[in-house]
Amino acid sequence: MSEPTPLPVEPTYRVLLVEDDAADALLVEELLYDTGLRFELTSATTLAQARHELTHRQVDCILLDLHLPDLSGTNGVTTVRDLAPHTAVIVLTGLSEQQAGADAMAAGAQDYLVKGKVDADLLRRTVRYAVYRSHTERASAEAQAARLRAAENARLERGLLPQPMLDTSTVTVTTRYLPGREQALLGGDFLDVVEGDDGLLHAVVGDVSGHGPDAAALGVCLRIAWRSLVLGGHRGPDLLHLLERILVAERGPQFLFATCALLTLDQTGGTATVYLAGHDTPLITTAEGTREAAAAHGIALGIAPEVRSWPATVIPLPPTGALTLYTDGLTEGHSGATGGERLGVEGLLALIERLPPSDPGALIDLLIKETRARNAGRHTDDLAVLRLDWHGRPPTA
């Protein structure tokens, strides 16, 4: 025979009795003992004492007399609810004050009891129901607040994470963005894609050092500045110099720096021009597979502003292929669930080679899933991936 399911343990109700009449207070205490409820009783004779108790202890239920030396009537309910908005309030009224009980419920009390007409069974049911109702109201309020936060976060995400600005380009853009901090909307990584008036496609992927809101704010600042500067015609070292000036001005007392990769794709000419400011080299995908593109490296932004060393690399492109820019959140994880060596670029390329063919979005999602699985949940760094795919050169004018 199976063992019977144990009954749920009766909770211990933390009760605050606010009553200035000693005889009535003693009667309520005796009734509480008769209810069979598990309870911890604290007493107060004035609203000032009740305020002190509510400030220093958690309470599940307040039994409140409407006539106190320092407050009277339903104003007492309002005041107590302000002090403990998620605590059940049961009002105690006199025999001739039944309308006052209804008014108290309208003011926010969960229930009311008439002195002289209360027995142990009624008090037990009233306390249980009032506490249950109060908990339900609190859970509902928290759920509503969570829904509002989620809606606000969605609006912020639409505003802060960029939409590619593509007019005539036939290049397919695929992006993924994962902040490292739990429940964070944005991290210090940033990415963007813009088609300029020159018909060329301009892309950036960057990573601000550190974690937290300061890095995220600086990442957003650099991303917006990059888009504005590109649309204003700035390119290459001039663009990186201006981004570095903005970074230095905006980072404040913290020594934050940023790595980034700038890429200008000329599909008609079959080339991509790359500038690396302390950033990982892009990956190029051709019919033969995916490899790391050969590119010269420059110094990260904000490390030594006077250096300004960012050499250009022109990468010849196949008629059909892809370029992938990414931040080190994709490669800094461990290569196995038990730790060991970092995945690194070589491990990333080996992983890509083993993945089944798929469309760009599904491929990136699977790649992120696999790298995070190998890291055994130790993912703490932000992650940004931007992939550009093209299929055949457009006809020349």
Results as ranks from 00 to 15, higher is better:
residue 175 T to V: 12
residue 148 L to W: 11
residue 285 T to S: 06
residue 351 L to H: 08
residue 70 D to P: 03
residue 201 L to P: 01
residue 173 V to G: 01
residue 162 P to K: 07
residue 222 L to V: 00
residue 15 V to C: 09
residue 32 L to A: 02
residue 323 L to T: 11
residue 367 L to W: 05
residue 252 G to D: 12
residue 224 I to Q: 00
residue 308 R to T: 08
residue 337 A to T: 14
residue 273 T to L: 03
residue 276 L to A: 02
residue 107 A to G: 02
residue 71 L to Q: 11
residue 248 V to Y: 09
residue 39 F to I: 13
residue 372 R to N: 13
residue 72 S to Y: 00
residue 108 G to M: 05
residue 6 P to L: 02
residue 255 F to W: 08
residue 12 T to R: 15
residue 181 R to A: 08
residue 145 A to I: 01
residue 169 S to C: 04
residue 197 D to G: 13
residue 71 L to V: 13
residue 12 T to E: 14
residue 143 A to Q: 12
residue 299 I to H: 03
residue 320 T to L: 05
residue 237 P to V: 06
residue 262 L to A: 04
residue 237 P to R: 06
residue 237 P to S: 09
residue 71 L to C: 12
residue 12 T to Q: 14
residue 99 Q to V: 09
residue 24 D to N: 12
residue 223 R to K: 12
residue 173 V to F: 05
residue 134 S to A: 15
residue 90 I to F: 08
residue 110 Q to N: 11
residue 239 L to H: 07
residue 54 L to E: 14
residue 295 A to P: 02
residue 170 T to R: 15
residue 139 A to M: 09
residue 362 A to I: 04
residue 208 V to N: 08
residue 190 F to S: 03
residue 206 G to C: 08
residue 332 E to D: 15
residue 27 L to E: 03
residue 234 H to C: 12
residue 73 G to T: 00
residue 322 A to I: 09
residue 100 A to Q: 07
residue 349 L to C: 06
residue 259 T to V: 10
residue 97 E to P: 02
residue 318 P to H: 05
residue 348 L to G: 04
residue 74 T to Q: 06
residue 189 D to Q: 07
residue 18 V to E: 06
residue 44 A to R: 10
residue 111 D to Y: 14
residue 101 G to E: 03
residue 183 Q to M: 08
residue 193 V to M: 04
residue 149 R to F: 04
residue 154 A to D: 15
residue 346 E to D: 13
residue 63 L to Q: 11
residue 151 A to F: 01
residue 125 R to H: 15
residue 192 D to P: 07
residue 353 E to V: 00
residue 306 E to P: 03
residue 91 V to S: 03
residue 305 P to D: 04
residue 296 A to H: 12
residue 330 L to A: 02
residue 285 T to G: 03
residue 74 T to P: 01
residue 115 K to M: 09
residue 383 L to C: 11
residue 340 G to E: 01
residue 242 L to I: 13
residue 34 D to N: 14
residue 284 I to C: 05
residue 240 L to Y: 09
residue 300 A to D: 01
residue 89 V to W: 10
residue 269 G to C: 07
residue 395 P to F: 08
residue 64 L to R: 13
residue 397 A to F: 11
residue 231 L to V: 13
residue 247 L to K: 05
residue 317 L to Q: 04
residue 273 T to Y: 01
